[in-house]
Design a protein around this nucleic acid. Structure first.
Lengths: 244, 244
DNA sequence: CGTGACATTGAACAAAGTCAAAAGTGGTGG
DNA sequence: CCACCACTTTTGACTTTGTTCAATGTCACG
């Protein structure tokens, strides 16, 4: 039994691979690692070593807030790939932990990049965009899973501000929020009534100001502290390593 | 101003593109579409037409439960790409709605695939795995955002069952659940105390059985009905269209 | 002005969290 | 084989957070 068996059976069931490609796959899944239950496999913030396949056992991908609240973003089962963001040179925005005795196989980074050799540089750019988006989804999971209503609202406002800023649509701690509170509520997993209350309260506390569709983050540092906001998951917009 | 300006400024700030690649990018972002606020841009379940860039305006990506509860999975702002799953031939597992007057540019499907011409078939397989994973993350967002504790637990058990089944690790409505309740709680955004209560209650209702680390989904249809479980987001494991 | 969509407020209610203690479980070594 | 340990699960009482329902405001626009 090869380390890539489980992955292979997933890919085959999706009709994505033939046997030749399967052999190629097995060829790049080189070093097999074994971990005990509880062991950390990839640390948040650590530079990417390579991508991994889960050969056997269960692992979790999780993100913790600074006060200890923890959100498992998803479970990784045999055949699952992770840290496919190697392509982009980004550090991991999450921690991977073995939940049971775990066997993984590492897919070599340069081998992986070789697969893209011959493709347009745009292909990697799109890959990067997809990785980017995944990071935003993960953060959304943590936001809605382990943050209070107040924290959620603050966190979303901060994220929107940062994302809009990159394309020149926000500055001076202010931006146009062209959507109603019930859309915010649907994004945050709250009722629109409660969103209204929280926004009013943030305004009364002097953290934000609202007029029409304009929002101003009056005290951005305080907002960030309030919800434990980190730009790690967005930073890559500005600091990603160049690709070969 | 070209339709890809916002995307370009994102990619450039990540040092991913030079001007030549930017021109190539502009070359494949052909047909520009305009939508009114509230209009549906991509319908859940519809076959992929191509990938899109948001040129101007805001959109949401959302998933609704059959009783109307709605979860916005993320907001799409100018420069964001979406429906990158074209590569995989999967239908959309979510609905894209314009939140404001919206301008998008379509990236032609065959042009997109051409970018991968010359890359190994494995490159597309990895892309497919990433898309797969994103779908699971989206479902996790809906689960934790708009489902009750009872529904969440049922939904997660069903997902794990389906995912394990693909690699032969579950059958007969039963599988080994080798993790503690506090891991489940961390994944579901609940307290472990509450998870314990819910599991006990599901067992008393005759929907599941537990012994050691074994879980049996005694009445899978009822569980699926209980939490509005759809395999759409997992199905691709078995029904994805073949790639060129 | 009047109208309709969106936002705010209050009061009653429900879901899930917290705290604390008791009951299993399984592994270890005597 | 049993006693002991650490850990996980269960249960009950109580608290907190956010929801629901319903009424009231506000504002842009015809």
């Amino acid at each position: 039994m090869s380390p890539t068996d489980a992955l292979f059976s997933r890919l085959v069931s999706g009709a994505l691979l033939d046997d030749a490609a399967g052999a190629a796959l097995a060829g790049i899944a080189t070093s097999v690692e074994r971990h005990e239950a509880g062991e950390v496999v990839v640390e948040r913030g650590a530079p990417a070593r390579g991508a991994f396949v889960v050969v056997d056992g269960w692992a979790s991908r999780s993100i913790s807030l600074s006060d200890g609240r923890r959100q498992i973003v998803n479970f990784m089962l045999p055949g699952d790939l992770f840290d496919l963001q190697v392509f982009t040179g980004r550090p991991a925005d999450h921690t991977v932990t073995a939940l049971t005795p775990l066997t993984t196989a590492q897919l070599d980074k340069t081998e992986m990049l070789n697969l893209f050799r011959g493709a347009s540089p745009l292909a990697l750019a799109f890959w990067w965009a997809a990785v980017q988006e995944e990071a935003i989804l993960r953060e959304q999971i943590v936001r809605n899973g382990r943050r209070s209503a107040r924290e959620r609202v603050a966190h979303l406002l901060l994220e929107l501000y940062e994302r809009l800023r990159v394309t020149g649509r926000a500055s001076d701690d202010a931006f146009v929020l062209p959507i109603g509170q019930s859309s915010l509520a649907d994004a945050l997993g709250l009722s629109y009534v409660h969103v209204s209350r929280v926004l009013s309260q943030l305004e009364r506390s002097g953290l934000i100001e609202r007029q029409r569709m304009q929002v101003r983050l009056v005290d951005r540092p305080a907002l960030q502290a309030l919800c434990d906001f980190s730009t790690l998951y967005l930073d890559a917009w500005e600091r990603t390593a160049k690709l070969g």
